[in-house]
Amino acid sequence: MNRLISEISSDVLIQGFGLHEDERKVFIGKVGGQEIQLLPDFHNLDLDAKELKILFLGLAEASHQFRPGDVLMTGSDDLLDRAFQVMDDIEQRCIVVTLSPDQDSTHLYFSNETLEPLVQEWKQRKVSFLCLWMVAPQELEGQAKLVTILRKIILKDS
């Protein structure tokens, strides 16, 4: 089951993934046979669920390291490999980042104090996860592009 958590508008995700509200008031759907569930936050995340994949979408500010339209990403090796393939296919500039300043000198540091402890726990528990941020997106166009990228990553598993 894919669990989607996002900083971008849930309306964009509901439309982009064709999600519908179930009896528990949770948005769910399928992408290429893969179940997806939109969670409002990190609090109800069951890390012991079978075949769990955590997908996070967010937005980032432009800086001297990151330019508008870049996609920043961090994740488990399986989903990062899939993301690289998708980014190559659509010729999207992407940058692997680390959320811990002194962790890996081959990756650029991206400060996200809310997500950093969660990512460390996911790595420790060997959970499959992918975090994507678009740098200074052009309103809904950039958010829609993130949804398209994520759809392609999910479909690579089908």
Rank of each mutant, 00 (worst) to 15 (best):
L150F: 07
D11C: 07
K152H: 08
M1G: 13
I54G: 12
D157I: 10
L38S: 04
C131S: 08
I54A: 11
I90K: 05
Q103H: 05
V12I: 15
K25R: 15
L108P: 04
P40K: 11
V135Q: 00
E91D: 09
Q34H: 03
A136G: 04
S9H: 10
A62H: 02
E116R: 15
K30G: 10
C131V: 11
D70A: 03
E91G: 04
R67D: 03
A136E: 12
D88W: 05
K152E: 11
G142Y: 03
Q120E: 12
L132N: 02
V71Y: 03
D89S: 12
D104R: 13
L19M: 14
E23A: 13
F27E: 11
D70L: 02
L108A: 09
M73R: 05
L38D: 03
K156P: 01
G58K: 05
E7P: 05
L4Y: 06
S100L: 09
A60T: 07
V86N: 00
V12Q: 06
V127P: 02
I54P: 14
S111D: 07
Q138D: 06
L4M: 08
V12R: 10
E7L: 12
E113D: 06
S63P: 10
A49S: 14
V135I: 03
S100R: 09
E121R: 12
G32L: 08
E23M: 11
A136N: 11
R82N: 06
D77N: 04
A62E: 09
H64D: 12
F129D: 02
K53L: 04
D48C: 07
K156C: 10
D48L: 12
S76N: 08
I28K: 15
F17V: 13
R125S: 03
D48H: 12
H64I: 15
G33T: 08
V127N: 02
N2K: 15
L38K: 01
R24E: 13
L146R: 03
Q34W: 00
L45S: 10
L130H: 06
S76E: 01
G18Q: 14
L79K: 02
E51M: 08
D89T: 07
F110L: 07
L57Q: 03
E21Q: 15
S10M: 14
I154K: 08
K123L: 13
P117Y: 04
F27C: 10
L52V: 14
I154A: 02
T148L: 13
A144C: 04
M134Y: 00
C131Y: 03
S105W: 05
L118I: 15
W122V: 09
R151Y: 05
A83F: 04
L118H: 11
A49T: 15
P68I: 02
I54T: 14
V135Y: 00
V86H: 00
D22M: 14
A62F: 00
P40E: 09
R125Y: 06
E141P: 01
Q37C: 15
L155G: 04
Q143E: 12
L150Q: 10
G18Y: 13
S100W: 00
P68L: 00
